[in-house]
Design a protein around this nucleic acid. Structure first.
Lengths: 360, 360
DNA sequence: TTGAAAGCGATACCAA
DNA sequence: TTGGTATCGCTTTCAA
């Protein structure tokens, strides 16, 4: 009996050992069917770690070895498994980004510049949409943190307590964008919506407008701009602003509807301020349809300075936000934090600029 | 000597064993600083695999156990590591998508519907931009395949030999979109650009237009539409079409410039066909600026039926593509393939529709 | 219904 | 410059 017991034990051990050896010796395709580092290593006649180095740190490998590895890689069509790499190392080469809606040109453009900058350095961007209104942010953040990104971009600076907790617990560099706050989670790259609201008010009053209306989206940042503007207008003695609210995200139709509502509520001429260029565009179309001349009868001011507006639409003044710069600075800030470079300023104001075209 | 050898061996084994035990017993924060399954398991007083099951297959776990696990998860703020999960299992819950440009509203909208559909089933979309013109597709595909996605969406049906090889080697479900082919890599969900070109030609001729011009983007699919249209127009006896080429992606400015060029080349009135609604929009703005009446003096036909055009812009006819449907069908097709459901048809034509508004 | 053990495919650390 | 070995955190397989 005892003998049998020992026999059994032995045979179990042997089986395991054999399995391991067989596995190592085979070096065939992995379970998933794709080529592994092992296979490349075997073909090149070196160890797996050497292949890894040849791929990630070519200068740390002898020229001859590099040559052999390169050939083996080409021959096998090896594609690294970044899941395994990310698991094994403290870097995943993944950056998460959360925007309200990718169909919003403003955010899409920012993402394009952000991604382009990161791609240069071998990072992949994982995109998440928080939607309007932002309700899913928490579960979205949890889902995206599951991929263990090396850094994260957020849109806006307002986050629920739970979100803040999760983000801080993740212990990764975070850059907030499209707004400004003296107390960022980590870094913030954006501009002040309050100052824009005030600047717009001053600008219009300076141009001599007294009869003013708004078409603003139901979006927290737009609301901040509107409130600041109304407040400043009041300090200029203007307190009969006709305000029109539309749901976010805005589109041409909402802009048109917005103007219709303003007219219904008795607004006649003056200036209309919109929360986006798209809405402003819609207002202009509706005005044109009704024979209201822009800018003679009605001035229109947008926000964003979209490419469709810049230098193309003849009669739309707007507030320019330098999106390429914001996207790139956000990427650079994250990269600096990731590589532990000193970050001089954790609050970066990219500013804004009122662009006057034909409408005001 | 033999004895010593045995001793040494033993002590080595013991050291390894001790290390392992220490590790197991500790169950502290992982190297990356985040909570692991181990920690949750220890707190819940169950094994790691039970926690895994409670999270992924709740119905395979006893109610009481589930309760304990749920509490432990909440208490620790556990966020699963999907890199580890994806590495360990044949599923990564990652789907790759490659589009020419995310700032192109057409593609952005398709992606939104595609992502939304996949998010419902717990998938994360990994987005890649191939750019205009498509040159980086191969390195992009390699980079994105490094994340071992469970499936992949491509825009268009034209891929280099090397790309096809890589894609087939990846051995994952693939859906090609925005075009049609009888020989898809796997599945194709799209529409025929040839048939659109022909339909547009027939439509215009049917409306009585003889003087025709084009503003088409330097984009392979747009070119197919244009060629098919020109060919069909020729068969209708129209062979003096004034063609204008602009770089992709189109924007309002390019539309305006496009019309300017047409006029410079002697085009006077008739109909202008554009490769996108955006370009068409630009043409209309330029026309308006020059006092050319649309549609009385000039008919304009776009492509895409963007939300900015649908029911909002009063005078733009267009070719409607059902993007929500295309995005969702693409997602459904991938999901079906991933779960090995029978796929009835690997070529899905979502069709198109010429929408007449005020311009033609 | 639950658990033990063996990987998944790469990188880090240390030694040679 | 190169390689051995031990992970990374999870799921799978198989056994209880």
């Amino acid at each position: 009996m005892e003998h049998r017991g020992a026999q059994l034990k032995d045979s179990t051990i042997m089986k395991t050992a054999q399995k391991t050896i067989r596995k190592r010796k085979q070096s065939r395709r992995s379970a998933t069917g794709s080529v592994t580092l092992q296979e490349v290593a075997r073909l090149a006649g070196v160890s797996t770690i050497t292949v890894s180095r040849a791929l990630n740190d070519p200068e740390k490998v002898a020229a001859a070895t590099l040559e052999k590895v390169t050939r083996a890689v080409a021959q096998t069509g090896y594609v690294p498994n970044l899941l395994a790499g990310g698991l094994a190392s403290p870097r995943t080469r993944l950056i998460a980004a959360i925007v309200p809606a990718i169909t919003s040109l403003m955010y899409a453009e920012t993402m394009q510049y952000f991604s382009a900058r990161l791609k240069e350095t071998g990072y992949q961007v994982l995109l998440g949409e928080s939607g309007f209104p932002v309700i899913r942010e928490q579960s979205l953040i949890a889902a995206i943190l599951s991929w263990r990104p090396d850094g994260m971009l957020l849109t806006g600076v307002t986050h629920s307590i739970d979100c803040r907790r999760m983000l801080l617990a993740a212990n990764i560099p975070i850059v907030e964008t499209w707004d400004l706050t003296p107390t960022p989670l980590d870094i913030v790259v954006g501009f002040s919506h309050e100052r824009i609201g005030e600047a717009v008010a001053d600008y219009l009053v300076g141009k001599g407008y007294r009869r003013i209306a708004t078409v603003y989206a139901d979006d927290p940042r737009a609301q901040v701009r509107e409130r600041a503007m109304l407040s400043r207008l009041r300090s200029h003695g203007i307190d009969d602003v006709v305000t029109g609210k539309v749901p976010a995200p805005t589109d041409l139709r909402l802009g048109r509807v917005g103007l219709v509502h303003l007219l219904e509520r008795g607004f006649r001429g003056g200036a209309v301020i919109c929360s986006s260029d798209t809405a402003a565009h819609g207002v202009m179309i509706e005005a044109q349809t009704r024979g209201i001349r822009v800018p003679q009868d009605l001035a229109v001011l947008g926000f964003g300075d979209q490419s469709f507006a810049a230098d193309t639409y003849p009669a739309l003044s707007t507030v320019r936000i330098d999106r390429p710069r914001m996207g790139q600075l956000a990427a650079d800030a994250l990269l600096a934090r990731i590589s532990h470079e000193p970050v001089h300023d954790s609050v970066i104001d990219v500013g804004f600029q009122i662009v006057e075209r034909g409408t005001t």
